[in-house]
Lab assay of single mutants.
Amino acid sequence: KTELCRTFSESGRCRYGAKCQFAHG
């Protein structure tokens, strides 16, 4: 995971959680 998850960085939450293909910091 190298690319940051935009949804997580903007809203602080992501519906994919740990399964998200993007990094959550």
Rank of each mutant, 00 (worst) to 15 (best):
Lys1Cys: 08
Lys1Asn: 14
Lys1Glu: 14
Lys1Trp: 02
Lys1Gln: 01
Lys1Arg: 02
Lys1Phe: 10
Lys1Tyr: 09
Lys1Ile: 11
Thr2Trp: 00
Thr2Ala: 10
Thr2Asn: 14
Thr2Ser: 08
Thr2Phe: 11
Thr2Cys: 02
Thr2Arg: 06
Thr2Asp: 13
Thr2Val: 10
Glu3Leu: 04
Glu3Ala: 04
Glu3Thr: 06
Glu3Ile: 04
Glu3Met: 09
Glu3Gly: 05
Glu3Asn: 09
Glu3Pro: 05
Glu3Cys: 10
Glu3Phe: 05
Glu3Val: 03
Leu4Arg: 06
Leu4Ala: 13
Leu4Gly: 06
Leu4Pro: 12
Leu4Asp: 11
Leu4Thr: 05
Leu4Lys: 03
Leu4Ile: 09
Leu4Asn: 08
Cys5Met: 02
Cys5Phe: 00
Cys5Asn: 07
Cys5His: 04
Cys5Gly: 07
Cys5Glu: 09
Cys5Ser: 05
Cys5Ala: 04
Cys5Leu: 03
Cys5Gln: 11
Arg6His: 05
Arg6Tyr: 02
Arg6Leu: 07
Arg6Lys: 13
Arg6Met: 10
Arg6Pro: 13
Arg6Asn: 08
Arg6Trp: 03
Arg6Gly: 09
Thr7Gly: 12
Thr7Leu: 05
Thr7Tyr: 11
Thr7Pro: 01
Thr7Asp: 12
Thr7His: 07
Thr7Ala: 12
Thr7Val: 04
Phe8Asp: 14
Phe8Ser: 11
Phe8Lys: 15
Phe8Asn: 15
Phe8Thr: 12
Phe8Val: 04
Phe8Ile: 03
Phe8Ala: 11
Ser9Asp: 13
Ser9Gln: 02
Ser9Cys: 04
Ser9Met: 13
Ser9Trp: 05
Ser9Leu: 08
Ser9Glu: 09
Ser9Phe: 08
Ser9Arg: 04
Ser9Pro: 05
Ser9His: 03
Glu10Met: 11
Glu10Arg: 08
Glu10Val: 03
Glu10Gln: 10
Glu10Ser: 13
Glu10Ala: 13
Glu10His: 01
Glu10Tyr: 01
Glu10Asp: 08
Ser11Gln: 15
Ser11Pro: 03
Ser11Cys: 07
Ser11Asn: 13
Ser11Glu: 15
Ser11His: 13
Ser11Met: 14
Ser11Trp: 04
Ser11Asp: 15
Ser11Lys: 13
Gly12His: 06
Gly12Cys: 00
Gly12Tyr: 02
Gly12Phe: 02
Gly12Leu: 01
Gly12Glu: 04
Gly12Asn: 00
Gly12Lys: 09
Gly12Ala: 06
Gly12Trp: 00
Arg13Ile: 11
Arg13Asn: 14
Arg13Asp: 15
Arg13Tyr: 14
Arg13Cys: 14
Arg13Trp: 14
Cys14Arg: 02
Cys14His: 04
Cys14Ile: 03
Cys14Gln: 05
Cys14Ser: 06
Cys14Asn: 02
Cys14Phe: 01
Cys14Glu: 07
Cys14Thr: 07
Cys14Pro: 07
Cys14Tyr: 02
Cys14Lys: 06
Cys14Met: 06
Arg15Thr: 15
Arg15Cys: 09
Arg15Ile: 14
Arg15His: 14
Arg15Trp: 07
Arg15Pro: 15
Arg15Met: 05
Arg15Gly: 11
Arg15Asn: 09
Arg15Leu: 12
Arg15Phe: 13
Arg15Val: 05
Arg15Asp: 14
Tyr16Glu: 10
Tyr16His: 12
Tyr16Trp: 12
Tyr16Ala: 12
Tyr16Cys: 09
Tyr16Gly: 09
Tyr16Gln: 08
Tyr16Arg: 06
Tyr16Asp: 13
Tyr16Phe: 07
Gly17Tyr: 00
Gly17Ala: 01
Gly17Asn: 00
Gly17Glu: 10
Gly17Ile: 01
Gly17Val: 01
Gly17His: 06
Gly17Cys: 04
Ala18Arg: 03
Ala18Val: 05
Ala18Asn: 14
Ala18Pro: 08
Ala18Trp: 11
Ala18Lys: 10
Ala18Phe: 01
Ala18Thr: 04
Ala18Met: 08
Ala18Asp: 15
Ala18Cys: 05
Lys19Cys: 04
Lys19Asn: 15
Lys19Val: 05
Lys19Ser: 10
Lys19Arg: 10
Lys19Met: 09
Lys19Leu: 04
Lys19Gly: 13
Cys20Gly: 04
Cys20Val: 02
Cys20Ile: 03
Cys20Trp: 00
Cys20Thr: 05
Cys20Pro: 14
Cys20Tyr: 07
Cys20His: 01
Gln21Ser: 07
Gln21Asn: 12
Gln21Ile: 12
Gln21Glu: 13
Gln21Leu: 06
Gln21Ala: 09
Phe22Arg: 07
Phe22Leu: 10
Phe22Lys: 15
Phe22Trp: 08
Phe22Ile: 01
Phe22His: 08
Phe22Ala: 12
Phe22Val: 08
Phe22Gln: 09
Phe22Pro: 07
Ala23Met: 11
Ala23Ile: 12
Ala23Val: 08
Ala23Cys: 14
Ala23Asn: 08
Ala23Lys: 12
Ala23Leu: 09
Ala23Glu: 13
His24Arg: 01
His24Asp: 06
His24Val: 02
His24Ala: 04
His24Tyr: 00
His24Ile: 02
His24Leu: 01
His24Pro: 02
His24Phe: 00
His24Gly: 03
His24Glu: 02
His24Ser: 02
His24Thr: 00
His24Gln: 02
His24Cys: 07
Gly25Asn: 11
Gly25Glu: 13
Gly25His: 07
Gly25Met: 08
Gly25Asp: 14
Gly25Pro: 11
Gly25Thr: 10
